[in-house]
Design a protein around this nucleic acid. Sequence first.
DNA 1: TATGAATGAGGGTTCATTCAT
DNA 2: TATGAATGAACCCTCATTCAT
Lengths: 173, 173, 173, 173
Amino acid sequence: MLRERGVASLTMQEIARRLGITKGNLYYYFRDKQDLLYKCHLACMKLSLRALKESQSSPKGPAERLREVLRRHIRAITDEVYGAVMLTDLESLAPAQRRPYIAMRDRFERGIRALIREGVERGEFREVDARLAGFAVLGAINWIPKWYSPNGPLSAAAIAEAFADFLVGALEP
Amino acid sequence: MLRERGVASLTMQEIARRLGITKGNLYYYFRDKQDLLYKCHLACMKLSLRALKESQSSPKGPAERLREVLRRHIRAITDEVYGAVMLTDLESLAPAQRRPYIAMRDRFERGIRALIREGVERGEFREVDARLAGFAVLGAINWIPKWYSPNGPLSAAAIAEAFADFLVGALEP
Amino acid sequence: MLRERGVASLTMQEIARRLGITKGNLYYYFRDKQDLLYKCHLACMKLSLRALKESQSSPKGPAERLREVLRRHIRAITDEVYGAVMLTDLESLAPAQRRPYIAMRDRFERGIRALIREGVERGEFREVDARLAGFAVLGAINWIPKWYSPNGPLSAAAIAEAFADFLVGALEP
Amino acid sequence: MLRERGVASLTMQEIARRLGITKGNLYYYFRDKQDLLYKCHLACMKLSLRALKESQSSPKGPAERLREVLRRHIRAITDEVYGAVMLTDLESLAPAQRRPYIAMRDRFERGIRALIREGVERGEFREVDARLAGFAVLGAINWIPKWYSPNGPLSAAAIAEAFADFLVGALEP
DNA sequence: TATGAATGAGGGTTCATTCAT
DNA sequence: TATGAATGAACCCTCATTCAT
């Protein structure tokens, strides 16, 4: 859809242009810019949450499951509007919209922390603080859009593979 | 100086207010907003580069030296304008300014990668791709301003300590 | 039809909604907004003009006839779209439409003035300037929509009665 | 200042032009359009309220005092922005501003009603309902801007004189 | 150095209007 | 007749920037 960085910094004019419609028409589909941003945020976060949910019904161990979730999170971030959204300042959202979005994001982050904690308990991971480790792992990923370029030497899939491996490896003893 | 997030998103009016001067006067010190942003970027990056440089003349091993650099990088990011700057879109800078800044940033990143590579060679770190590992380590750190709050439960110093430990630990075998 | 205040300030969208049809369809019935406004004006003014005309074939004296016309004018203004129309700026109409409407309005105002003049001549009214008195009487009435509320303590009929009495009384010696 | 009808219907662009400044500069003096409208309303209503207040410390009888207040109210309405303001829809004001303005307007209207009531009690006026009579008198006046033209045959002063006389006469027995 | 006032470009939003179906 | 989607002009407002003092 947008495939660019910093959605919020884009002009409605510009967004419309990329969608191949007029600025006026954009307002037929979205009440205002915040509404549009909110819906982007929502749609994106749902991708990662789905990956998380599906991992929870997997028979594999926590390391394997975490690897899979991270892989899909990275793929989402590099493939979709997600990257643009991740880098967008949450201040761009109206408080009424920020709240539900943050709730979803927190749910995702808690899921990641739970996986880490489980791994620690089962001895698959070394003894780390799940909170800090979660922040580190997700930060490393969320930062990807800042340096990733679709035209670069590494494909998105390769990055997803390598990063997930590295990050899970970072947790293992 | 500014000690806030998202410099680029602040109004010149607002920046002036926080500095306790008048908007008109701000233009006595900075030619324009890009100039101001550039100087912030520069000042911040210098802190991290100094930490890197000083590590290079240290007798300690690469793990210890990396830990120290990361600690200071985090401290800079959380204590100073750095965070605001890290999150700022580089597009805000004029091309003529972006180039020298990116050059400095690349120098810092290369330094980090060199430390990692050295650690791998000396056997202090496991066999990782220095480029990807560098991106991961720095991404994890650069993302901190997104969730760090000076009023939160963890002090900046504590975070610096814990994060540096975790990230170096992530590289160790 | 519309039964609301300030037609001109209503959106075509909103007008359509209140009529229970779709915006696009509204344009099947009215060429454009000015056309719609014009037809409202016309329909409303006709009510008052009919009251005037019928009064002219009444055997009663001028005071009684004026009272009746005013009563019906007030009722029109409070019951119907009239109020909305009275408060609407005539600038909203295209010149080609404004002219015929103003002609009707003037016909009505001349009728009122004629009634006043007749009353003065017959000694039923005190010696007043018919032009100014006419402006005063009609102004007092046309202003009603500004403060009248259907949910208020006085019914429209009661106001019509009381106002017509007061205004005719204001002309009597 | 503005000397035109329907302030609210004027563009900020247009208002700025008439004041001889730029649109941007207008926002240096008024936070937004509602703020500007509010301040116009306030300034205008103060004129009429002052006339009312001064009448209260006059030794003359209620008829004479009412005549004077009406005369000044009319003069204000025809001379100043007042007319434009009177015709402006109060919906243009933010609720937070509408309230204090309406409070002032009600104070003025209550003052007029009090004068009428006093006149009735002293026998200077005939037995009328002060509320309705007040609405009629003020409506007649407030409607003036709809037909008054500075270039017309009657000067504003002449209208003020004649209208005040007629309206007070309308109350006398 | 410092200020208050002024400017102009551009962004978000509304709305009358059109058109294919 | 009726609809949903699309358009473009115009409006309110923000903000970096300038300038006289």
